[in-house]
Nucleic acid binder design. Structure first.
Length: 587
RNA sequence: GCCAAGGUAGCUCAGGGGCAGAGCAGCUCACUCGUAAUGAGCAGGUCGUCGGUUCAAAUCCGACUCUUGGCUCCA
């Protein structure tokens, strides 16, 4: 069975790998018991579980999963051995004569490859293994089937659509239970759910799928993100640009986007006999600014950043909340520098990225360094120089990294940064990419110290990636309980009874005047209901205000974590809040 | 784009050829209250859109659209 593609961190020898792989076989047998004519495709172990692809006489319904699971439990309880056998090609072809997908895999195996088959009970599969020795090593209470999905044979949309069943499998029931708990937590933190519950954003089918509407509370968070982002960029020597949203075809012909990227671009808008395109990237615009004057080596490096909104056509089936959209704002930047400056610039970009990620509460990062692919532009020396500077930067920061040989874009090598969120999931966010293509295409130059016109190095980088997607990750990372500096409402003042409405309003007004996002809750509800509501809204601090507080000029603080502190002098709370915001404390 | 499942009140969801439902939220009124839901009343709908079948369609059929789970690529 071909399973090279899966990114499992488990090695093939791990027991969990064997368990998942073997459970996939047991599932295939169960499916064959239900549908003797089923055609089986591939069924590898994957992160947390396994899947198997089938070509079936009818579509599976969710109830079928229970039936299949029941059959699997039977098979597992029957104590069958997994036996391995090495066969020659002719024998294998005979064995899988009515299994067209297996025959295709067989045909594609290198001639000298050892062909092994595994048999459990009545089910024999073409498979490299390894497996557990006996179904006794599979616990009937340690696996669960999760979902049915369509999947193209070999991921190719021109090939038949198969039915895939996903399952999760573990070495013991407790591990399964923990994983199911984890899945529940993932669901609870889903940014689409929290986006609604916390009134952060929406999308509208009538107005265009894949387009994000930021509500006032989402807007407050975005404003806090952008304010921090701009300040950090200023401090790090960046200038901020603003460029148009559309550009004439000349721009995209020159950049090459119309040749290589047009299926991701929105179609042209015709105006005054010219075609205008919504920008899928900001780079050509930044280059236009670069080219407004003769550039001297003395003014390099130029670090130009833009929160640029771009539009890319994505197939309808792949849109997903904030994570996968058609219009998004990149926190883009381009660095134009001399070849000599490249190393320092890259190191600083990487350091800068790490600082930004830390500020947003992400400290677990991993780098992926992608090098020259077969088809590429730019000289070998330039590629070499660029890769060395990328590698040096990673080493200097002591970042964990993986090489992706040949995985660079045709126009240059890159570092991608993946972050780990609170649930341990990995998200690819930042990218730092060399570009040997655009400076050439746009004939960018600078005048060097020797008076010669030379080609500048160009580096693209996006740190947060897109504000929309970053927002999605941020929501899920914090489960909607944003750190104080990002929280859309930082403080709600709650009077214990209507008699104290004025005091609650006054405190909220003072907080607002001091620059905090504070609101009084003067609604008709009882205090308990208010607390319940704002707790659900994950407001960092509720101030409970009654007679005692009013007389003392104090506040009683009920943080969302629940540890109540009563009778804190007002000034003390203001100072504390100032500090929390300044240090970007979670609470 | 493809396969499957969905779309009913602002939200979460029930109903499944014969009068459009619940809880929460909203509005009004009463209660004047000290740490996670005070009570009563009112209002709220082209049942995703268009077409078909039928005496009658939210319900059955078809097309479209969007959402969801995946497949390819990827910020």
């Amino acid at each position: 069975m071909a399973d090279e593609a899966q990114k499992e961190k488990l090695s093939r020898d791990d027991q969990l790998y064997r368990i998942r792989h073997s459970t996939a076989h047991v599932m295939a047998e169960a499916v064959l018991r239900m549908f003797p004519d089923a055609k089986i495709a591939i069924g590898p172990p994957i992160e947390n579980g396994f899947y198997y692809d089938f070509d079936l006489p009818r579509h599976l319904a969710p109830e079928d999963l229970e039936t299949i699971e029941g059959l699997m439990r039977d098979i597992v309880s029957e104590d069958h051995a997994f036996s391995r056998e090495v066969v020659d090609r002719a024998r294998a072809t005979e064995l899988f004569a009515d299994q067209e997908y297996k025959l295709e895999i067989l045909r594609d195996l290198p001639p000298d490859e050892e062909i092994s088959i595994y048999t459990v009970d009545t089910f024999t599969d073409l498979c490299r293994g390894p497996h557990v020795e006996n179904t006794k090593q599979l616990n009937p209470k340690s696996f669960k089937l999760l979902s049915i999905a369509g999947a193209y044979w070999r991921g190719d949309e021109k090939r038949p659509m198969l039915q895939r069943i996903y399952g999760t499998a573990w070495d013991q029931p407790k591990a399964l239970r923990q994983h199911l708990e984890w899945l529940k937590e993932v669901e609870k933190r889903d940014h689409r759910r929290l986006g609604k519950e916390l009134d952060l954003f929406s999308v509208h089918e009538e107005a265009g799928p894949g387009m994000i509407y930021w509500h006032p509370k989402g807007g407050r968070i975005r404003e806090a993100i952008e304010d921090y982002w701009r300040g950090a960029h200023r401090r790090d020597g960046y200038e901020v640009l603003y460029t148009p949203h559309i550009g004439k075809s000349w721009l995209w012909e020159t950049s090459g986007h119309l040749d290589f990227y047009s299926e991701s671009m929105y179609p042209a808008i015709e105006m005054d006999k010219a075609d205008y395109y919504a920008k899928p990237m900001n780079c050509p615009f930044h280059i236009m600014i670069y080219k407004t004057g003769l550039r001297s080596y003395r003014e390099l490096p130029l670090r130009w950043a833009e929160l640029g909104t771009v539009y890319r056509y994505e197939k309808s089936g792949v849109l997903h909340g904030l994570m996968r959209v058609r219009g998004f704002t990149q926190d883009d930047a381009h660095i134009f520098c001399t070849p000599d400056q490249v190393e320092d610039e890259i190191l600083e970009v990487l350091r800068f990225s790490l600082r930004i990620w830390e500020a947003f509460g992400f400290t677990n990062l991993k780098a992926y360094l992608a090098t020259k692919p077969e088809k590429a532009v730019g000289s070998d020396e330039d590629w070499e120089r660029a890769v060395v500077s990328l590698k040096k930067a990673i080493d200097a920061e002591g970042l964990e990294y993986e090489m992706d040989e040949g995985g660079g874009a045709f126009y240059g090598p890159k570092i991608d940064l993946k972050i780990h969120d609170a649930l341990g999931r990995e998200w690819q966010m930042s990218t730092i990419q060399f570009d040997f293509n655009l400076p050439e295409r746009f004939d960018m130059t600078f005048v060097d110290s020797d008076g010669q016109e030379k080609r500048p190095f160009m580096v693209h980088r996006a740190l947060l990636g897109s504000l929309e997607r970053f927002f999605g990750v941020l929501i899920e990372h914090y489960g909607g309980a944003f750190p104080v500096w990002l929280a859309p409402v930082q403080v709600v003042t709650i009077p214990v009874a209507p008699a104290f409405n004025d005091y609650a309003a006054a405190i909220a007004a003072e907080l607002t005047a001091a620059g905090f996002r504070a609101e009084p809750d003067l609604s008709d509800s009882r205090m308990g209901a208010k607390i319940r509501h704002h707790q659900a809204q994950k407001v960092p601090y509720m101030l409970i205000l009654g007679e005692k507080e009013q007389e003392a000029g104090a506040v009683s603080i009920r943080p969302r974590t629940g540890e109540q502190v009563n009778g804190v002098p007002k000034d003390e709370f203001f100072a504390m809040l100032t500090d929390k915001v300044k240090t970007r404390a979670e609470i």
